[in-house]
Nucleic acid binder design. Sequence first.
RNA 1: GGCGCGGUACCCAAGUGGUAAGGGAGCGGUCUGCAAAACCGCGAUGCGUGGGUUCGACUCCCACCCGCGCCUCCA
Length: 489
Amino acid sequence: MTVRIYNTLSQKKEDFEPQTPPQVSMYVCGVTPYDETHLGHGRAYVTFDVVRRYLEYSDYKVNYIQNVTDVDDKIIAKAQGAKDIKQKCAEIVKQYFDSYQDVMSKLNVKPPSNYPKATEHIDDMVKIIQTLIDKGFAYAIKVGDASDVYFEVAKFNGYGKLSKRKLEDMEAGARVEIDKRKKSPHDFALWKAAKEGEPSWDSPWGKGRPGWHIECSVMSSKYLGQTFDIHGGGRDLIFPHHENEIAQAEAATGKLFAKYWMHNGFVNINKQKMSKSLGNFFTLKDIFEKFDPMVVRLFLLQTHYRSPIDFSDQQLTEASSAYGRLVKFIQDVDFILGKTTETAPQIEIEDIQEDLLEYNEKFTKEMDDDFNTAGAIAAIFEMIHFCHKTLDEGEAEKECLEIMKKSVLDLCEVLGIKLETKAKIELGGMGGAIDDSPEVKKIEDQIAEREAARKNKDFNKADKIRDKLKAQGIILEDTSLGTKWSAVK
RNA sequence: GGCGCGGUACCCAAGUGGUAAGGGAGCGGUCUGCAAAACCGCGAUGCGUGGGUUCGACUCCCACCCGCGCCUCCA
């Protein structure tokens, strides 16, 4: 089976054929660290983390580059008033980028192969801008002592091929303030002459700083080559950002920039896009106060990456229950494993291998189809259901339990959903097998006391103990193998 | 105005030219001292509306209604 990817360029699903398999080069537009990371960002980076993980699972070697826009109007605005503006900008970037990385790590997003920063590639950008001027795709306009440099959109034939718009169509509804100096309102800045109190770098056009789009064209080519396999980002970047990236890069090199363009859908609040400007965003930091990051991850992946997701507490609460079901399965298996006896089990590994394989195949089929995580998650739930059902039918041999557990964990791992840590934390005692801390001892003493009461048919007392533990967040389950307990946070 | 996306049960959400995955909630049952969990069963005669193509459409085509996004920074 081959992976199929929906390519924004062709507006179709295409067979994924990287240039030099098994190598895959992938670039995803990163953040501008000037504020806390919100759920919308989370969705984008979880999406591409899954793309990366699944490609790796499919035996590709992924070189994943994600830039950091560390020079930008918003950062500068936030730094205004500082004595050393460049220094202040760097501090802001550090603060929010650290926070970004922290939050991503909680979401179990693997760090990219590299996080290149715009300010560390000014020279490379200057070179490309010069090339564009030399080739007649760009022009400079004097501003005081320095110059702005603009890309002349009309010179690049193919402009609009990603966002499917024609220059004529855009002019009709453009709400942009018209800058009379530019040859066309669509021309965009490659280099901005420094204004008073702005961080700046030397260039052939005097002191200034790069425009937003150029960094991505430059850094992606630098780390991945002039043509690379996958370019990703949020839907909102299609125009103008990605369109402009293509124009700059392809004008400069004459080569195809990126083969596959992938764009994730938005997170909405009451059907409206979650965004900074609307002020309706929820930061991941805040969400994590109430919900486990893995719940958030599951919530995001239960919808196909290209569809919008409407965010609400209720939806997260539902995802929480679903996640609990996954975790509980691992606990149940661990519990049984901890109790395994020497008796002859009725269910052997041969009985279930084929079935497990079926769910595995369904998972792969779904993921191959443009990373259909919703379908893939369904396959995992079906696999769990099958395992529970099997375990209900009789005693299973140890290998059987282990392969069940491994099968589920492996698939969850491809989606970056962690179960084991949570399962272990909750299942602190495992019937006394793992943890012998005083707290656990105390809980188990009470369980033993309850057990004795139950034997004596003193159910009143037994229920009291159960209620008391429940109030402490300890949930008891009486099974044929004894009482199982877990600590739910 | 241009371009794009979507409308599937109580909620969320996959999917497909041949008769609706999965999750959450609910109801009934098995198990249990009672629970919990798990298991079994129930739950859209129908996939925005109206036409059309077809042996057959929710899936293809047309029109319409509704919601959203991009065209300005935005994941």
